[in-house]
Design a binder for these strands. Structure first.
Lengths: 353, 353
DNA sequence: ATGAAAGCGCTAACAT
DNA sequence: ATGTTAGCGCTTTCAT
């Protein structure tokens, strides 16, 4: 822009310049260049304007347009951590449906920090995005989300907040955990444990609940870890699993890790304890992250329909953008158990014990 | 915004509203709310303005501000695929240095599609971002990048383009490949092969070159795959490796895969051919992606200083933003060989062959 | 079919 | 220390 360059830069070419060169009024130039209104202008004039624009290297100033029109055509996507394997497919799903409708998606990270989360959201509102997709919420963020909703359309993706009342699309984490736990119980396991992720994230809370429901229904025993993961990482998984393996109430025959990283950590802990998977202890993960099929043993885990989730989120956003005043609903998409080799029937002697 | 809501929304509160409520002129309100100019206003008046702003839930309209000031405080980051493991740390590096300087980073994906690439860049320029970080370039994009540079500061990250002449920060891929290949040669391997990624991406081109340099220097033989990967995926790696293992010129004793996914694919191909790694064939990957330490055997690979790269990129961007007219330079950051278990000395009989 | 004029919300130069 | 005025680049009535 002018303030920074000595000479005029291409982006400094303005609609007025184009109009002058084409010998028309800016209003006409504006019409000629807008797909929506080009039919209002003589096709010959339009030609002239288009040529002029091309020759000058004109690029519309979306800032000015947005200011005038009151909308930016931007959707902000706020995610906790781009390292999460389900995010790329989800973001792609968003683009796939928002893009053709003329919206551009901009992704920002919070790194799971509440303050950054708020700052990023405020920032996006200040920039007048037309809507925000929040995939970084913690369960206690309900009031804050309500605040945001006073300013613009919001859709919660992946993570819900307590209380409901917001437009949200999540994975069905309770179901996912039930799938895992029922599979384990069906295999004959009775002494089960879970490696829990941070409970202020609805995904982990849901998995914990699904697990416990099934444990209760099948009269299994939950071997409880005294601790829970600070962050759901490989190291934390290893630490928690190690504690579990030496529990004074006896060790579990199967472990449900709330995500694949912790499952891999548990695998490591097993190895260091001289135990084998799945012969001595079965392990199941969650997310079906890349490469989980290639660890040893290949990890049984849960696959999430993340691309579909992104598309649903986008559809819900469009609903709000288009003024369909649908009441807030939360839809939960069904995950799928991927059976590989890290879980098997418990050894005879242990099952009997 | 007004056009979409029936009632007035919080974001529709304007500076004028604040000024009226505080009983001052908008200009005064503007000053009072700007950290840079608050000292120009009586502290008592400032109080009144701040209170009024707080009560009304005023949020500055960055669109209007940017239009007036001629800069947006936004930096666009254009990446090929968020699934790439080196991107999150790099993006974080960007934020870490750009954030404190008042810039916000917005990430967009191209999915490796040239048309999307151009569209996204144009879009960002239309939105008047202050600069673009391009991490999705193909080697032939030099002219296009030059075009962009006419409009705004550009820094190339990770991938360079042919011809040079742009501000760029990359990983030293030639060095990385040399590290791998020298390690392999040092182990005693003489019959080497590489699994090449798409050659229109500088990273892969560099790795191919480093590999071939060392092969020539150590009088090794490159067993050439007739094919190359369309996309550097596990499946492609498996396909290429399978072909290599049945090559009529005899199979290699070591394979350098241009990334970890292809290396894992090669591991699979080995397994299906009844061969063991590293006893029969050594395999080395690239990127040190998550979980590569946990596959069997743990993958020897190359670790990239991606966070540092992001920070350097940001610094280079700030240099341009701050008008230091440094000439375009390209800096290449050194990667590091991570020795695990997928590469070992070749078996005696094969080494002799 | 085109032009004139107003204004989106803000900041900067210039008064006072 | 505060108010006045102009204008960033565009779109949108309203005239013609």
């Amino acid at each position: 822009m002018a303030h920074r360059a000595e000479g005029r830069r291409m982006s400094d070419v303005t609609l007025k310049d184009v109009a002058v060169r084409a010998g028309v009024h800016v209003a006409t130039a504006s019409r000629a260049l807008d797909p929506q209104r080009r039919h209002l202008v003589n096709s010959e004039t339009r030609q002239r304007v288009e040529t002029a624009a091309g020759e000058l290297g004109y690029r519309i100033n979306v800032l000015a347009r947005s200011l005038r029109k009151g909308s930016t055509g931007m959707i902000g996507a706020v995610v906790a951590d781009l390292g999460n394997p389900f995010l790329p497919p989800m973001l792609r799903g968003l683009e796939e449906v928002l893009g053709p409708r003329g919206y551009m998606t901009a992704v920002s990270e919070t790194h799971e920090d509440p303050e950054t989360f708020r700052r990023v959201c405020e920032q996006l509102i200040a920039r007048r995005v037309d809507g925000i997709v929040v995939s970084a919420a913690h369960v206690g963020d309900s009031d804050f989300i309500s605040t945001l909703e006073k300013s613009l359309p919001v859709v919660l993706a992946v993570r819900r907040v307590s209380g409901g009342g917001h437009h949200t699309v999540t994975h069905d984490d309770v179901l996912g955990a039930r799938l895992v736990t029922e599979y384990l119980a069906g295999l004959g396991h009775r002494r089960l444990a879970q490696l829990r992720g941070p409970e202020d994230v609805s995904s982990f809370a849901g998995r914990a609940r699904g697990f416990q429901e099934v444990v209760a229904e099948h009269d299994c025993t939950e071997i409880v870890a005294h601790d829970r993961a600070g962050a759901p990482t490989t190291d934390e998984g290893k630490r928690l699993a190690a504690a579990l393996l030496t529990a004074d109430v006896g060790r579990p025959t199967a472990i449900f890790a709330h995500n694949d990283l912790m499952a891999i950590g548990a695998l490591e802990a097993l190895g260091e304890a001289g135990l084998r998977c799945p012969e001595d202890v079965s392990i199941v993960g969650y997310n079906d992250a890349p490469l989980t099929a290639h660890v040893t043993p290949p990890l049984t885990t849960v696959r999430l329909p993340s691309n579909a989730l992104g598309r649903r989120v986008a559809a819900m956003m469009l609903g709000q953008l288009d003024q369909h005043k649908e009441p807030p609903t939360t839809v939960a998409l069904e995950p799928e158990l991927v059976i590989r080799a890290s879980a098997a029937a418990p050894a005879r002697d242990r099952a009997a014990g």
